[in-house]
């Protein structure tokens, strides 16, 4: 009854998830074309931090594997964070960046930026995430506008509008790619959701966007709880609803843009992870938010590992793995809702 046991449970759960994430990352780095033992992985990281002598396996770990695995963790965390935010703000367990069209919007924005900015490295490093953010934000505004009737947001309309807009924007992206054949193959692979050939720059770019996008949700976790009671009730209990929604949706758009601009369209992480975590730990965002972020990171690191080893040495884009796992999960939620009705 007192707050103390709740807090120690929070700490316990989060510590457990963090430990699992560390193990997943070590496993993710260890597996690959050249197997590296977990001891070597830890050693490489220790060398990098302690400045010892670098071995060949250190180079593989630090320059190739670790950035990719960390990026997978960040992308998973970002998509899960966005999923938690969307599901709370729209009171809809089916809301996620992919289904709402925000990922496609970010994809189109990133594609436009890529084509417009040419090949200058600096221009791309800044311009692509910005383009993705603009695309994500505008898409969110458009979908919410389309699904609103007289100031009310209908949950079914929201999903339908999101999916319709998502298809249109994906088609536009494909169209742009057909026009620019030179870039096509690389961007198509990126759009399918891939983590190949990613470097520390990508980790830094997404890391910064994720950090900025997490500030508001971390500070306002109680507001997210209150939003589940409905906009009007949240207002009655002291939440400045419109301002809070704008802030939270902007945060979500930012982390989605960050994720999409480094890894393309990876679906269902934002849907599955918060949902599973909520089933296990309840709806309070003080715990749901950090736990979902950690779980999202774990899920994508494991999915990426899968994508690399299943058909090794051929790699599958990780988006295919998450979609294959996530599609059935989506159906399971739908059917489960039907049955409990």
């Amino acid at each position: 009854m007192t707050p103390a046991p709740g807090r120690s449970r929070t700490v316990l759960v989060l510590a457990g998830l963090a430990a699992a994430l560390v193990l997943a990352i070590i496993a993710g780095v260890a597996f690959g074309a050249v197997p590296i033992s977990p001891g070597e992985v830890v050693g490489a990281i220790a060398h990098a931090l302690g400045g010892g002598e670098r071995t060949l396996s250190d180079a593989v770990v630090l320059d190739l594997r670790l950035p990719r695995v960390l990026l997978a963790a960040l992308v998973g965390a970002a998509l899960a964070l966005a999923g938690v935010l969307y599901q709370a703000l729209f009171r809809n367990p089916l809301a996620d960046p992919y289904i709402l069209g925000v990922s496609s919007g970010a994809g189109l924005g990133a594609t436009v930026a890529m084509m417009a900015l040419g090949t200058s490295y600096m221009m791309r490093a800044i311009g692509v995430p910005l383009g993705a953010f603009a695309g994500a934000g505008l898409t969110m505004l458009l979908v919410v506008r389309l699904a609103s009737r007289r100031g009310r947001l209908d949950p079914t309309s929201l999903l339908l509008a999101g999916m319709a807009v998502s298809y249109i924007l994906s088609a536009l992206t494909s169209f742009l790619l057909v026009l620019d054949r030179e870039q096509m193959s690389g961007v198509v692979f990126w759009m399918m959701g891939g983590l190949q050939n990613r470097s520390w720059e990508h980790v830094a770019s997404l890391g910064v966007m994720f950090a900025i996008g997490s500030i508001a949700p971390a500070l306002y976790h109680r507001e997210l709880d209150l939003m589940l009671l409905g906009d009007e009730r949240a207002g009655q209990l002291g939440v400045p609803v419109e301002r809070f929604k704008t802030l939270a949706l902007a945060s979500a758009s930012l982390v989605v843009a960050g994720a999409v601009s480094v890894s393309g369209l990876i679906g269902f992480i934002g849907l599955m992870t918060p949902h599973m975590v909520r089933l296990a730990l309840g709806p309070r965002h003080r715990l749901l938010l950090p736990a979902s972020v950690l779980a999202g990171a774990i899920v994508l690191v494991v999915a990426d590992l899968f994508a690399r080893v299943v058909l090794a040495p051929v790699e599958i884009p990780v988006g295919i793995v998450t979609a294959l796992a996530g599609g059935p999960f989506f159906l399971w939620i739908l059917l489960r809702k039907e049955r409990t009705r």
């Binding site: 009854m1 709880d225 589940l228 009671l229 009655q236 309840g282 709806p283 309070r284």
Partner: peptide
């Protein structure tokens, strides 16, 4: 209010 949404599983105390 007249009606209240209860589509979330907060405990009564929370």
């Amino acid at each position: 209010p007249q009606t209240q949404l209860a589509t979330f599983s907060f405990t009564a105390r929370a």
